[in-house]
């Protein structure tokens, strides 16, 4: 587990949608390897029967009531977008492969 290969780095970069140069990939193989090796020390600990700490505070059931509040003015929303047509946010053509709106 402590060693990480170039293939692993490429796979992870794909998941994160990062494009890495060869030099960056090689450096990450080494750096991530070192960090993961350091992280290995956690395996010294027997954590069977220990509950994971998922949340920092032991609070439950915080909700908002179902009330409509004012939305953002569309012009204000689109004003900070890199590309828009006044109605829609624009992105390079999505070649719909049935994966969209997968929800």
């Amino acid at each position: 587990m402590s060693t990480i290969s170039k293939k692993d780095v490429d796979y992870v970069a794909g998941l994160a949608q990062l494009h890495l140069s060869d030099a960056e990939t090689n450096r990450l193989v080494e750096e991530m390897g070192t960090i993961l090796e350091y992280i290995e020390q956690l395996n010294e600990l027997d954590t069977s029967g220990v509950e994971p700490m998922m949340h920092a505070l032991e609070v439950t059931n915080i909700f908002r009531e179902d009330e409509v509040t004012p939305s953002l003015d569309r012009d204000a929303a689109l004003a900070v977008a890199p590309l828009h047509d006044g109605e829609y946010y624009l992105v390079p053509k999505i070649l719909d492969n049935g994966d969209g709106g997968s929800a």
């Binding site: 692993d8 780095v9 992870v12 994160a16 990062l18 890495l20 990450l28 220990v50 994971p52």
Partner: peptide, 30 residues
Amino acid sequence: VKRRIMLGTYVLSSGYYDAYYLKAQKVRTL
């Protein structure tokens, strides 16, 4: 930032969640 995104993506990726993230949360409890 890229280094940490990579590390974080790796520890959550398929097959590693229990070994890294869940383990870390348990040690966080300790």
